[in-house]
Design a protein around this nucleic acid. Structure first.
Lengths: 152, 152
DNA sequence: AATCAGTTGCAAACGATTTGCAATTAAATC
DNA sequence: GATTTAATTGCAAATCGTTTGCAACTGATT
């Protein structure tokens, strides 16, 4: 269907592969963590902590635990954090080897999210970096508009 | 000096012109508002509400008043809101006629900010919109890196 | 000067996120 | 499999940016 974000969905990682990445980092595989990773695996879209919490079987895990888990997963590079400007952080699983860098197109009316393959042109980014003497330049980029269903 | 953000600084608006824009919208010119506009005028960089508050002569105005003023100024298009992903909104004055759309390059170490003229290529943005059936597409874009002074 | 809607200060309320701490538990050890 | 220990969790309280209710106040108009 959404052909332009296919690559973000292709390789749905095995839960086992995810937990082994954790173990490799000397982290414990706990019930809450396994449950969180499973939710992320099933939702190839950026999720807020509250959304993850809502997906979890009630009582499975405290909201604070989710915050701590996402913090850790981000630090390990297993998850990428996104900011849609609505005051809540969102997270998406990152495949092994992938750096997770990509962008989204968000409907300003229904909050529907589409992954985007296009990126800011490297050449222009390099020019910007050079012109200002900056190094290690990256960018945060998200698109906003009205999705087909919301245009009326 | 920073030649690539010159156009954001060129025309420092007169305070009188700012207040007349307010009056035109049937808003009152109060002490706090004049003071806030003056601070914005003097700082051609995105400022957080707390920063504006700190610049203000103590007791000049309540922090809540600044929040309300910035909200109103944004609604009137006199100010543009930016989000650097650190949890605090930032605002910059917008010239008459200008829509305020532009981007920044932010040092991740010292938080130094440079205005950027480059923008995401319209043609690619149009392609993204079309490919997903979206209309009225815009973007939020900010660059991050290490400024000359922070590279060591 | 009188009027009145728009504004303000202050404190309380909020929503997202973080943190202290005692109780719990995964994983390494015996 | 029981023991040990450091990592992890739940819970409640604390933080931070931002919003809001409300009574007092003040521009702008009459």
């Amino acid at each position: 269907m959404k052909k332009n974000c296919a690559h973000h969905h292709e390789k749905k990682q095995e839960l086992a592969s995810l937990t082994s990445r954790l173990r490799r980092e000397a982290r414990k595989i706990t019930g809450p963590r396994a449950a969180i990773l499973e939710i992320l695996r099933q939702h190839p879209h950026p999720l807020t902590n509250k959304e993850i919490f809502a997906e979890l079987p009630k009582g499975e895990c405290d909201l604070a635990t989710i915050y701590r888990a996402m913090q850790m997963l981000e630090k390990l590079g297993m998850v990428q954090r996104f900011d849609f400007g609505d005051g809540a952080a969102r997270y998406e699983l990152v495949g092994e080897g992938d750096d997770g860098h990509h962008h989204h197109l968000i409907c300003t009316r229904c909050a529907n999210v589409v992954g985007i393959d296009e990126c800011f042109p490297e050449e222009i980014e390099r020019r910007i970096a050079r012109a200002n003497g900056f190094t290690g330049v990256t960018h945060r980029l998200e698109f906003f508009g009205l999705c087909p269903g919301c245009q009326k």
